[in-house]
């Protein structure tokens, strides 16, 4: 990890409330792995003391990008980021997804902008699999072209049925699992807590490995403040708080203790 002053390359709406911010950040780009994040200081966010964490969507050739949705004060202030801005970021932070697969079938499960790190993950995997992308509506389904161009199978679900199948992302996942009883998939998921919980439960019940990228409100981002903690069960069965920013954000579903 390091502090890097990143200049803005592009900043564009990718649909609805979603934007992609592309930054020249050679040191972060050079070492980032899928599942890691950057902790960004949002410019002109008066009275703000906390950075905002974003999963890395792309990292190559000295450039990183993040995909975000305007959901609050911080992301709303980010909309004004322009070509002249230099952003202060700390990155890359956290542990990425374990990418080694040993011939297993990867199943990626994304909720909304949780698809971003999974697109990055797919780009470094040497096998193809299936990505399940869920969202409220058609405008919440992102990065479909990324996966198609890499030869992945894409299954889309939306709450309102405006694109893909109507229902939760687990509906499509459950069907896949039922249709492939002999498969030994490894699951990788990123999205809201409820989705991660549902995916994790299915994986644990079927004794499949599942890696969940957790999203919690963060303070420092480096493991010092202990704000973004998650209950995790250790090998000896004891439960303790682990830091999502430092010990995660990716956790083995079998170790996650849900409230």
């Amino acid at each position: 990890m390091q502090i890097e002053k990143a200049t803005v390359k592009t900043h564009e709406v990718v649909g609805g409330d979603y934007r992609e911010l592309v930054l020249n950040a050679p040191r972060t780009a050079g070492s980032a792995v899928p599942g890691q994040f950057v902790h960004l200081r949002v410019p002109r966010l008066d009275g703000s003391v906390l950075r905002r964490p974003f999963s890395i969507y792309r990292a190559r050739d000295g450039v990183i990008s993040i995909l975000y949705k305007t959901v609050g004060r911080g992301t709303e202030a980010m909309v004004a980021i322009g070509g002249g801005d230099t952003l202060d970021l700390i990155g890359p932070l956290g542990n990425g997804f374990p990418a080694e697969l040993a011939g297993e079938t990867p199943l990626l499960v994304a909720g909304g902008y949780g698809v971003a790190p999974l697109s990055f993950l797919a780009s470094v995997m040497d096998v193809r699999g299936t990505i399940f992308i869920g969202g409220a509506s058609a405008r919440d389904i992102l990065c479909v072209g990324d996966f198609e161009s890499m030869g992945w199978t894409v299954r889309i679900t939306t709450d309102d049925g405006s694109v893909g199948e109507q229902g939760l992302v687990t509906l499509a996942l459950d069907r896949w699992l039922a249709e492939h009883p002999e498969a030994k998939p490894v699951l990788y998921a990123c999205g809201p807590d409820g989705m991660l919980h549902a995916v994790g439960q299915r994986a644990v019940a079927a004794e499949h490995t599942a890696w969940l990228s957790m999203d919690k409100h963060m303070g420092c981002g480096v493991g010092a403040c202990l704000a973004c903690v998650q209950r995790i069960r250790g090998e000896d069965g004891s439960e303790s708080w682990k830091r999502v920013c430092r010990d995660g954000p990716v956790f083995d579903a079998a170790t996650v203790v849900w409230e």
Binding site: G47, S48, V49, L50, K216, H217, G219, C225, L226, A227, C228, V229, S240, W241
Partner: peptide
């Protein structure tokens, strides 16, 4: 010591409020 349950921190204007609970 385990500290408090989450949420443990919230940003406010000009600062933050924490209740980590001395984990």
């Amino acid at each position: 010591w385990n500290g408090n349950n989450i949420p443990r921190m919230i940003e406010v204007r000009g600062g933050l409020i924490n209740a980590i609970g001395l984990q």
